[in-house]
């Protein structure tokens, strides 16, 4: 940022402060979050009570992990509708593995591996068969839920003897803070470093900004796309583990509509649906905004049905703003 003041007398040109503007946007989002929190406290002082804050934090973590994966995908100008279904399948599979005596570490690795395989299937459809991401992942969304229902026979699966030992991941505390929050912080930090400071991160932005230019610049576009869908799949698998651990049961319906939550979080967080712009800081703040908003609606005693209406409207507003920004520029 130091070099902002140097340059050749052109510093006042529009757009010269590209990165600064990125920060400003995150800062603007942060203000939205702060105002929302203030409003929540005004509505009910119980908002800032530890119990409630931890609940909100868990919520942020659960939706946030998947949203980080979604951020990767959307940055490449793709979309992953299948995340919720992957959570469902992996949830059931994890419960079946644990109840049949598979050691916890092994079951966890297998769960993440399943997520990766699902993601890779999405990636392969997009890369090798030229499927539009929306359609490919819509297909795996429907199939995934079907698979979850089939292997679970439509019923929740218990964990058997592993139940107590496994519950730490979703319900445990570390230094007084719920474990899922730690997991989310670690994932978000890793994602931040990858996107901002590694060649792979650069390649993600390159593919999302201009796929053809990326190819001509020597970037292995298929590899980048395969990886982002695989990452999204792995993080869906991780979310499933937290879900199962928290509920101590493998629900075939787990993660239903999670893709919508994740997409709205990413878009509210300022990542462009047109690819190449945005990042994980926005997604973290977006996840917090969504969670606080849901908390406020609960505090206001608004029915879950009405909440859906509000949520839908917010998503439309966020996307409208994004489209407006995009069009104004070009």
């Amino acid at each position: 940022m130091v070099e902002m003041t140097t340059g050749q007398g052109l510093a006042s040109r529009p757009g010269s402060a590209g990165r600064l503007r990125g920060w400003a946007q995150s800062l603007g989002l942060l203000w939205v979050l702060i105002v929302l929190c203030a409003f929540a406290v005004y509505l009910s002082p119980s908002f800032i009570q530890t119990g409630n804050m931890l609940n909100v934090g868990r919520q942020v973590a659960l939706f946030g992990i998947v949203s980080v994966g979604m951020t990767f995908v959307i940055l490449t100008r793709g979309i992953d509708l299948s995340v919720g279904s992957i959570v469902g399948v992996v949830s059931v599979a994890t419960a079946l593995m644990l109840s049949s005596g598979v050691p916890i570490p092994l079951a966890m690795i297998a769960a993440l591996g399943m997520g990766a395989v699902f993601g890779a299937i999405n990636g392969a459809g997009v890369v090798f068969f030229g499927m539009p991401p929306f359609i490919m992942t819509l297909g795996t969304l429907v199939m995934g839920r079907g698979i979850a229902m089939t292997i679970a026979n439509g019923e929740p699966k218990t964990l058997g003897d592993a139940s107590d030992a496994f519950s730490y991941l979703g319900s445990g505390f570390l230094f007084g803070i719920p474990v899922p929050i730690w997991i989310f912080v670690a994932i978000a930090a890793a994602a931040f470093v990858i996107l901002r400071h590694t060649p792979f991160g650069r390649q993600i932005y390159a593919v999302g900004s201009n796929t053809e230019a990326a190819r001509l610049a020597g970037i292995n576009v298929p590899r980048v796309l395969m990886l982002v869908y695989a990452i999204s799949g792995v993080l869906s698998g991780l979310t499933a583990l937290v879900f199962v651990s928290r509920l101590t049961v493998g629900e075939p319906t787990a993660g239903t509509n999670l893709e919508l939550e994740a997409i709205s979080i990413v878009v509210i967080g300022g990542t462009s649906l047109f690819g190449g712009e945005g990042g994980v800081i926005g997604t973290v703040i977006g996840a917090a905004i969504i969670a606080v908003m849901a908390n406020i609606l609960n505090l206001l005693g608004i029915s879950p049905f009405t909440q859906q209406i509000v949520k839908g409207a917010i998503i439309i507003a966020a996307v409208m703003f994004e489209v407006y920004r995009h069009e104004r520029r070009s």
């Binding site: 060649p199 650069r202 390649q203 230019a213 610049a217 970037i219 712009e277």
Partner: peptide
């Protein structure tokens, strides 16, 4: 505009995107 550059990205991004290895230490740029 359509085949060469990443218009929404920075000058630095556009210049280094094809060859990041020499700028990378321990996996980080």
């Amino acid at each position: 505009k359509t085949e060469g550059l990443f218009l929404e990205q920075s000058v630095a991004f556009n210049v280094t995107v094809s060859e990041l290895a020499p700028l990378t230490r321990g996996g980080l740029i």
